[in-house]
Amino acid sequence: MSSTPATRPQSRLLAGIRLYRILLSASVRARMQYKLDFVASATIQAVTGLYDYFVIAVILWKFDTVHGWDIYEIGLLYAVSRVGWGLYRIFCDEIERFENYIVRGDFDSVLIRPWPSLFVLLSRNIDLTRLGWLVQGAGVGAVSARALLRAGVLSWAGVGHLVVACVSTGCLFLAVGMATASAAFKIVRIEELQVFTENASSTATLYPLDIYPGWLRKMLLWVIPLGAGNYVPVRHLLGKGGTWVNLALPPVAAALSLCLATHLWHLGESRYHSTGS
């Protein structure tokens, strides 16, 4: 006499959304249990992030502009990058920490669930302390946008495009993060690789890509395409060149990158099925 699973016919999408909602509220409740820790953690992250902006600000204070970009214009680049990064780290933190899953064999626990492994990972944890990045980025963005709106360089429609760019950048970070995590299936330890693909490249895109040699510019647009999320649209919004294509590029680049990254992930996963951990 075998027991039957207690399931209900329900569309997968609805079930996924419901699951995600439950996880979100569980994460919030867990964090709120330690209010002081949450506030401290978020604040520290915000302050750490602002340090990068501080460096930029000092440089610009000394040199007025960098390749024709002033502090508010660079502030927009900064804001889109940081808000995108914050979105990625809030919702997809487990991908960032994927190395542990391979080292400790915890990926097995992901594979016994009735969902695709990516979904299980993405829904495992929602880290609200990363709001620090988001808030800090949005703050810099607000200050910069206000100045640029006043100066007539930026329009309100442009602000809408900036929001799209933020979300697209978040997706680009996810794609880069997923592709890097896929490497863990083969090489296990990916911490240094992450520093290169994520930290170094995102810091590089805080500055206008004009300042870099051609090969680096191409790399930040085509290989680790974080530049496609902030530099490309912001450049056009500020009247520095480009066309409406610049504004359409971020979501397109994000979608393509996510497809490629998902493909890499599945390759890695089938390798895991062959070789274990």
């Binding site: 699973p5 207690a6 399931t7 209900r8 329900q10 079930a15 419901r18 699951l19 439950i22 996880l23 569980a26 409740r29 867990a30 669930r113 009735p114 969902w115």
Partner: peptide
């Protein structure tokens, strides 16, 4: 919470 999450995960 683990039980809540799992019950949602398995459509219980």
């Amino acid at each position: 919470d683990s039980f809540d999450i799992l019950s949602a995960m398995y459509d219980v």
